[in-house]
Write a protein that binds this DNA or RNA. Structure first.
Lengths: 207, 207, 207, 207
DNA sequence: TATGAATGAGCCTTCATTCAT
DNA sequence: AATGAATGAAGGCTCATTCAT
């Protein structure tokens, strides 16, 4: 029961780590910065996380979970059933492009993972989960539209995420080049291109 | 003629920096590492580049140029005119996925650019150039196929790069999830989906 | 009855401290290590010993007592009365050279005492006690042999201990150079050299 | 030729390390202390010695060499040929008991070597060298006295060093118990006991 | 009696940078 | 044009100690 305070502290540290990491990036973030942000001593941070690596892993994990959670909203808060797809895509993009702390952290550590294998596992899991999420909901949308995609449906989620991530990178380095409407237009055009509304299946000829 | 600083030394340093940066990533690279790699003293490195930042900028610039150059080959070495598009896409992917030193450096510094504005300019320029390159050659391909895309053609290059970049990120994190054929299949299916071969050719008039 | 502090806990801590100190040496031993070894929290250790120094003192004291006790056996368990001396010396050597935890701790803290005066008192007491012990028993041995030493007998115990300690140091540093038989041979030869068997017993009277 | 300054600096650091180590002991000596003592920055110390361990090794080596050198004087500066042996022993004892910085360092690291194997090699070498030194000169003394020892002569040097070391330990913890005359008396008595002046060898009977 | 949390000083080490030569 | 020496600020981490519970 004494360890309730510990949970609170750990959460505070992770939150502070998220803010600092988002603000300064992995290379420029020190434990001192995080300790200052959370208002604790360096020693206290080390009391809860044995190494910087352990703390970073926890922050990354939390960031992935949060981003994934937030992406879920894309499929639930359907404003109008009409443009449900565009709305979902818009939310998906905003989760990234809003560059919330969590999204920044994911992006930052993604690059770190090039040289730090230990970061890869949670990110891989994140992509797997996100892809599964998209696949599940996309199926519904397509059925609702009465169309079959021109591509195996299970390939679409990773493609979608690739586009969102890739666009985000371009936006980061050149925010003028990419804006929300641009991304949504492209994605929608793409979605429509991928759908084959085909000829209505031949009704059985009457006797 | 006034500006000496032995171009050969500078080039050596940049090359060494490229290797080390690709191997260790920005966060783990020190000037000492680079000096060792090039076989010079730390002082010498500082003589040619007043600051680490300056060296990094030069390395990034070089990496961008090299990657862009290599991408050019995608459009020139067409093995068979038949599957010219697939072949070009394959080269484009390989330039990234091969993870040459230069490609790694671009990926690494791209993430750094999230927190270091000074890195963004060369990357933005790189994307602009790469997009222009694609646009120029893609137009030809499409014309050759006698098809018009279902999307303004000037939007396709950045989309293509986004997909390539995004796929690469997923591959880095989970190399089992993404392989070359997967990427090429997706891209080709996408390309075909995006193309509208116009109104069906006149059906033969009924007897 | 007033002083509680659970003697059992204190004893456990001292025992654990002995093990850890013997294993790692003073310089590398932290209270955390000891707390882990005894299965208590660091706080608990501090409850029983206000300071690390106090704990170390207690451990040293215990180590000295234990070593002294064990040395007593040297003079009691006489296997054969014949080579009683050699047997006693053997035991004395083994108490040290066996490098029991206690012996290691004594050796380790002996060096610490060079710079930590507070450690000297128990060690001084230990040597005094050990010398007295040897003197008492050695007297008996010599009388039994009907010989008088060529040196004031009260000087022999400290000499003996010096030799044992000094040989041990050489053994620690270069275990090939010193083995048990070597030490015992040297000591025995020395003992015999030190003994003066007095004027030859009256030769049988002529005719 | 630029590295002359380096040699000077390295020597200064080792000297300072010797002083600090002698004063505070291994466990309480930090690189900061040494840097302060030598009047350099911590970074400068690290520039010349990659790790603390490396510096300590060098200091130990130097201490061993210095002690060994100083012991040499024992055999060279013979005041009067008469009590040459006592004089030599006196010098030998003083080298230790004077507790020069070097002697302290050797004593201190000797105990560390119980738990730090890397320290043992130079100490083992030191003992080997010191023993050889004694053996060489002792032979001469004995021959000069026309006596043969009651113990293989090659065993005497290590015995002598053991006694000196062991006596020193007792002196450290209880300086009242051991003084110079005491040690010298004991050693001399021992030396005489060990010598067998035997009956003059029978001259060959004349024809 | 014992624990978990927190502190703060200190440790070894790394590193970008400066400078005399 | 280049080097070796030196600096000083961090950085990650350890640890004896304190304290509320």
């Amino acid at each position: 029961m004494g360890y309730k305070k510990s949970k609170v502290s750990i959460a505070s540290i992770v939150e502070a780590g998220m803010r600092v990491l988002a603000r300064q990036g992995y290379a420029r973030t020190s434990l001192m910065d995080i300790a200052n942000e959370v208002g604790m001593s360096k020693g206290a941070v080390h009391y809860h996380f044995p190494t910087k690596e352990a703390l970073m892993a926890k922050v990354l994990q939390t960031a992935c979970d949060t981003v994934a959670d937030r992406a879920l909203e894309a499929w639930t808060e359907v404003d109008s059933p009409n443009d449900a797809l565009r709305s979902a895509l818009r939310t998906l993009w905003r989760v990234r492009a809003g560059l919330s702390d969590e999204a920044k952290v994911v992006a930052d550590l993604l690059a770190q993972s090039l040289h730090d294998e230990s970061l890869r596992a949670p990110l891989a899991e994140y992509y797997r989960f996100a892809a599964a999420q998209v696949e599940q909901h996309l199926g519904g949308h397509f059925r609702a539209l009465g169309a079959t995609p021109r591509m195996p449906i299970e390939r679409i989620p990773r493609l979608l995420h690739a586009i969102l991530d890739g666009m985000l990178m371009q936006k980061i380095v050149d925010s003028d080049a990419i804006d929300e409407e641009y991304v949504l237009d492209v994605l929608e055009a793409l979605a429509l291109s991928l759908l084959d509304f085909g000829p209505p299946t031949e009704p059985p000829a009457p006797g």
